[in-house]
């Protein structure tokens, strides 16, 4: 039941229909960060469709996606895997106490050249 709820949420907030996927794997062929991920873009699509959301939610892969949209741009069937990955990550960080990045971690990460943009973006991606 829980699982179905997550699947529903992921589908709703991503606006993606994983059934459109024809399993060509072009997303994973395009992904620049493929080697850093446990689950790869094409797996996100099929695992969301199979309702295996929790497996994805506990994987560090959700924080490795660069949201560079290469998979979205090149998908021949307009499935938009990056939107699914984002939605799975949101399912995690929207839960109480699940922020991936905490403000008190920031100071040690800073260096003097680091642009604000990086901190702002990371906050938007990793916290709620």
């Amino acid at each position: 039941m829980e699982q179905n709820n997550f699947k529903e949420t992921v589908l709703r907030i991503s606006g993606v229909n994983p059934k459109k996927c024809m399993r060509c794997g072009k997303c994973s062929g395009a992904c620049p960060n493929y080697d850093e991920m446990e689950f790869h873009p094409h797996q996100f699509v099929s695992m969301v469709e199979n309702g295996e959301i929790e497996k994805l939610m506990t994987s560090p892969s959700v924080y490795k996606c660069l949201t560079c949209f290469a998979c979205v741009e090149r998908c021949p069937r307009q499935v938009e895997p990056a939107k699914l990955i984002e939605a799975v990550r949101l399912c995690v960080i929207r839960q109480a106490g699940q922020n991936h990045l905490k403000p008190d971690q920031i100071p040690e990460m800073l260096d003097e050249d680091l642009p604000q943009q990086a901190i702002v973006s990371a906050f938007r991606k990793f916290t709620k």
Binding site: C68, A70, K125
Partner: peptide, 22 residues
């Protein structure tokens, strides 16, 4: 038109390193 690694530099500079080097 490949990604530089973006904001991941905050958490894990190894990733932007690989990307930016490429």
């Amino acid at each position: 038109n490949e990604c530089c690694g973006g904001y991941l530099t905050l958490e894990d500079p190894e990733i932007p390193k690989k990307r930016s080097e490429t």
